[in-house]
Design a protein around this nucleic acid. Structure first.
Lengths: 328, 328
DNA sequence: CTGAAAGCGCTTACAG
DNA sequence: CTGAAAGCGCTTACAG
């Protein structure tokens, strides 16, 4: 492999000078510069970034920790992150926890050992070990999706989004609104969205049967099953179902359609996420757009800013947008 | 930052011994091992992989080059790759070319400078500069999705998949079959799928009007527009439309539905890709499953095998499966 | 404008 | 079973 020493020899200069040319800093005579560049070109020399990184303590790599790699949300976020960091010549090192909390911690340490310059975590839960691992890493760090104490966080406005969409159902004359949520170990999706729903119901003095509130696991199938339970176990049928993710909402629509319910005439369905699918199912799904890609961009911008100059911890709340379509 | 030297001092041994304990090779007395491990634990010491990689010439990182990061195909493939490489403790360094051919080459060189142990390229085209860059990199390399000369390639069986699905339309009594393809700079999707369609038509002596054959760009919108052109410009309406991707097929369905056509009664629609969406649109879309995740797994396995022991160049053809649903 | 030298944090023959 | 020493390929004060 060609190294900086080879280039130096071939150009009859020291490797110091070659380094200066390559990094464009320090004075080098135009003549020498040209000579070196020519040789670099001819040999196809590619500098070793591991050596550089060992020496400079910067790697040009940003670590991204995802709960699941193959979801539309994740790929939108990564796309947003990538767009920003690529411009600054950073690469993304991707890790997938498969929703395993231990892996979150393991990967933070791993990324640290790879000397990444910063980490963006798409968080799904909050726990003390996680927080302390992040503190110990002592690296520019952004949490996206959960409000992590002591860590700069970008969160979606889960509470208000859920409240808004519930309100929208109410203003469409729905008074019996069922709910499909996820487990409370996920504060953002599991707790805040549910609270937004519950508070809105009580504000309007609306009833809610126990059987109207079900807990799924983000999958289409769980939306289907929860809806089955709602329909079968309710003394009174709801006239609307609010699922906290589009996928579960689409599972709900599937079950309702199979059972011969008309959507929205018999039962309306809404979700959250503005997935591509939500637009193309029939009827098209009313949902909330969380601007995931923009959230990824923002996370990357904040991270880069923090890398350049240590920023104080702050919490950012993303905006969202209701998308009214045919399922209501 | 704690280094191996610090640990060595604290344990009163040489860093050689610490290295041996950490990497679990060479003889170390049980007593010393325990002492070292305890100190490692207490200090939270994290070895520097850049230093290790500089020394060993292996990085434990695999580079993946994607044409677009946020597509379902890409995320399935990456998920498959990740599953395999994570087991062997490799990380994925992800790059996104945004369909720019120059970036493919740029990223190969970049990944090389980062000393990745191998590269998987989701190729979208074939050109000489690309091939020669790959040869120069002299790294374990797998092409996925295109048959790159001189490079181990995993390809989908585009020709036969297209032929099969066309045949299926014919055996459902369709004789007027329109086609929505993509540009021919993409040999797999643009050329092979089209050829499979054309050959099947001529084998059955079926007609095909010029206006029945349109070229889109993978997007839902282009499927919509191509279908508009087909419907408006044809002297005879086709009774079926074969779009080479699900997204374009879904665009086609959208236009047809808007215009009041019944699917499949008036016009049948088929796609390729087995996207999640294809299952959940109404009517559900007949399509071809390419097992993208399995392709990703296989790419990773081949790459790892090649890293361990140089393998001869070979071409692998993935299997596929027709999924008949309600759009035919 | 240019170079010699030190050092980043590891691993690995080699010697004992 | 253990350690001293060399070296991986860079960058960066420092000196001239």
């Amino acid at each position: 492999m060609t190294t900086i020493n080879d280039i130096a020899k071939m150009a009859n200069v020291s490797r110091t000078t070659v380094s200066r040319v390559l990094n464009n800093n320090g004075y080098v005579s135009e003549e020498v510069r040209k000579r070196i560049l020519k040789i670099v070109e001819e040999t196809g020399y590619i500098p070793s970034l591991s050596a550089k990184s060992l020496r400079t303590k910067r790697s040009g790599v940003i670590g991204v920790i995802l709960p699941r790699i193959n979801t539309e949300t994740a790929s939108r976020v990564v796309s947003g992150i990538n767009e920003v960091v690529a411009k600054e010549n950073f690469q993304i090192l991707l890790t997938d926890t498969e929703l395993d909390k231990n892996k979150e911690i393991e990967y933070i340490r791993l990324l640290q050992s790879r000397h990444v310059d910063g980490i963006i975590l798409l968080a799904t839960n909050i726990n003390d070990r996680l927080i302390s691992t992040i503190k110990d890493a002592n690296l520019p760090f952004i949490s996206l999706g959960q409000d992590l104490p002591e860590v700069t966080s970008i969160v979606y406005d889960d509470y208000h989004a859920a409240a808004d969409i519930t309100n929208m159902l109410i203003s469409n004359d729905h008074t019996k609104i069922a709910f499909i949520g996820v487990g409370e170990e996920d504060p953002s999706v599991g707790q805040l969205r549910k609270q937004g729903y519950l508070d809105t119901l009580s504000k309007h003095n609306l009833p809610n049967e126990d059987s109207w509130i079900q807990t799924g696991d983000f999958s289409i199938e769980s939306g289907y099953e929860c809806t089955k339970t709602i329909i079968k176990n309710s003394s009174q049928l709801p006239t609307a179902i609010f699922a906290v993710t589009d996928r579960m909402a689409i599972g709900a629509m599937e079950y309702l359609r199979e059972q011969g319910f008309q959507i929205p005439a018999d039962i309306a369905v809404v979700g959250i996420g503005a997935s591509t699918m939500s637009k193309h199912v029939t009827p098209s799904l009313t949902t909330v757009d969380y601007f995931n890609k923009e959230a990824g961009e923002k996370a990357a911008q904040l991270l880069i800013a923090d890398m350049k100059k240590k920023m104080p911890r702050k919490k950012y709340v993303q905006t969202y947008r209701l998308i009214k379509r045919d399922s209501v």
